[in-house]
Design a binder for these strands. Sequence first.
RNA 1: GCCUGGGUGGUGAAAUCGGCAAACACAGCAGACUUAAAAUCUGCCGGGCUACGCCCUUACGGGUUCGAGUCCCGUCCCAGGCACCA
Length: 828
Amino acid sequence: MSDGNHTNSYNPAEVERKWQARWDERGTNAWTDEALRSAEKPFYNLMMFPYPSAEGLHVGNIYAFAGADIYGRFKRLQGYQVFEPIGFDAFGIHSENFALKQGIHPTELIPRNVERFTRQLRRVGLMYDWNHTVDTTTPDYYRWTQWIFLQLYKAGLAEKKAAPVNWCPSCNTVLANEQVVGGECERCGTAVEMRFLSQWFFKITNYAGKLLDNLKTLDWSDTTRKAQENWIGRSEGAELAFPIARRKVADDRHEAAQVEAERPVIRVFTTRPDTVFGATYMVLAPEHPLVDRVTTPERRDAVDAYRRQASAQDLVTRKKTDKSKTGVWTGGHAVNPATRQEIPVWIADYVLMEYGTGAIMAVPGHDERDFEFATEFGLPIIRVVAGEGDGADTPLAAAYTGPGRLVNSGQFEGTDVGEAKSAVTEWLASMGVGEKRINYRLHDWTISRQRYWGPPIPILYCDECGIVPVPEDQLPVVLPFVEDFKPDASGISPLARHEEWYLTECPTCGGKARRETDVSDTFLDSAWYFLRYPSAGNEQVPFDPAITRTWLPVDSYIGGNEHAVLHLLYARFVTMALRDMGHVDFEEPFTRFRAHGLIVKDGSKMSKSRGNVVVPDDYIAEWGADTFRTYLMFLGPYQEGGDFRDSGITGPYNFLTRLWDSALTAEDRELDRDVEQKLHATIRKVTEDLEVLSYNTAVAAMMEYLNVVRAGGRTPERGAVEPLVRLVAPFAPHMAEELWERMGGEGSIFDGASWPEFDAAKAVADTVEFVVQVNGKVRARMPMARGIAEAQARDAALADAHVRRWIEDKQVRKTVFVPDRLVNLVVG
RNA sequence: GCCUGGGUGGUGAAAUCGGCAAACACAGCAGACUUAAAAUCUGCCGGGCUACGCCCUUACGGGUUCGAGUCCCGUCCCAGGCACCA
């Protein structure tokens, strides 16, 4: 069994066990605080921390982490001092629901999951600094999450207000939009309603402009930038004022104008102020505060009925676009400021309170939704834009939204719509009934969760003093252990059932106070964790100023695009707010962000319910972490992901095994010229590919190189294999360490070795294969000296018998020459 | 409906400042070694034909160009995201 060959054949399990133990013993990847402070070439390599699910690490996690780890190891070999931390995003409804289902308390479940994750992560050979981990559920972390809440509160960026939420009347609880399926509660199937609840909000909209503008300056994946751009949703237009008309229609225009000034106005936002002459009615959201003012006594019952019906709908169904338009007339009118005509005011649920002003001027001639509504209820449709070939009276069979010139529009008759936008706005502004306006679809961030498993919001309510923030020196507000953490019939946080916890003393007046019983959104935990990592363990401050100056912003951040908007936007917002308060000196947290692709199985996302989760442990046990990492990266473009299958894993395994054998059998001798050339070309290719995360082609290049090194069963040169060991190190760190050691290297390859350099002159061959085309078709291939001039190349091509056959006696009218590539002879 | 990506052999894919389509692998086939199998090694591996050569081929239809997988116009399909945002 254990013969003399034992140590010479590749045994991944043995090699990997050895090096994982060594890394821990020697602290190869761990930082001390002093070292963090004095780093000279710091590189902060960040990856999105996982939610430690009970199922353990799945292939998708490993794909994400390995790809980020490879980049970090590459940077380290290039001489950077790389800080690569990991942590656990363990608070939140996901963990809580799972705990509920299992009947295990999260305080018991989460540490168990974290422990399992840690064990699995160590097995993958990731370069983590285990001295600087973060677990969002520990008081020494969420103490500072609460601190962040207080800073935002102090800066006026946190406020409490009523907001619509999905409400299940059977479970008596609030549901996230994702938990509403087809208008019904995902758990019990009851129709979901919309309710207004008082909640804490962060005013992220204050930063909408900066969040959008800064995107241009960031080195981020285009897809991610675009997603944020759409999410923020900037619209340029105007806000216009439509005064509510008196109950009795006034025939004296002059008198009407005087009274208008005292009457309430309906403000609307529009991106088409140019079409104001075509506004034939108005629509308010059913929840609009002016509804009561405009509604006439005769219409009161109808309006109330409609409002009840609208509020009984859940948010998801209400926003469905494919249902037909509904609404009722309030009985009231408003005055179109452009035409001075009175137009009816309706309420309808297609107008949303949360966007713009919650009211619109309806221009059925030139807006598809308004057209549909006007057709349904017989409201007048007027053409105010004429497209190509249209006259002022050309009937409208549908809303016309294309280009054209204004018609039926008073003094703006004939103006081009593009120009009319500002012209009409200026005219209305001069009369005090309009102004330019930029609107964002970004909403303020609801931070309150009526649940148990999160950091308590550090706020007190005092009968005397009102809202009182918990003094910073009283943090953390510890989440109490509560046996029954299930949300109950009251629909408010389970913490609200515990008087002994929430009844307290007001720090300002000493009187009776009540704690906020909601906890904060998990996304707040993850909105600042990257600031904590380098200062993890510090009990004095959330992030050490000197360390933060050295290490932040993050140099490279890699993660899934499912967080393109929420997490990445929240992290940017929190960073901007902290900057404006002077806590950090940078505005953007992540200098470079790359989204990795998603690994799916049989065409769909891996999930427990589908039963298609691929567990990596077995693959690692069978093939080793090095092979598994390399295989995952070889699967396809890292930024595209793909369908997981294991059919090709022998490819990378064979490659690594052959590299192992080559390293152990290599002999000292001069490099062959063609091997040398291929070596330099490979170093160049791999270096360039790793920089842009093109891992699959980097692996292919190394395979190709090894094929050359071993071509025809030749014994490889030591100088040919040794640089390949360094190139492969980011992918297969354990094997690289072992071979580095066996080839006489000192310590860890990641400290002792440097990334191989290439010589551009040596990377190219002396002869190149030229392609000879006749009229653009390939007719011959012939070797020629590198750098050959056009005339010589053409002569050589013309001397070829086969080429001559295609030319015969025809004239060569033109020669196209691409240096070191091809000659194209155009005959005819 | 809108916004992103994407559509290339049996499979994963490679090649986009326009210049040899299918690198690198997997699977398959044939051979060597073996009593046999596994492992390993070697060769073949898009389609067609009148076959040492030629024609066709990158979802489909046009166009620009000496030359198009790559650029332009139009169409279809797939995946993901957003969606009554005024």
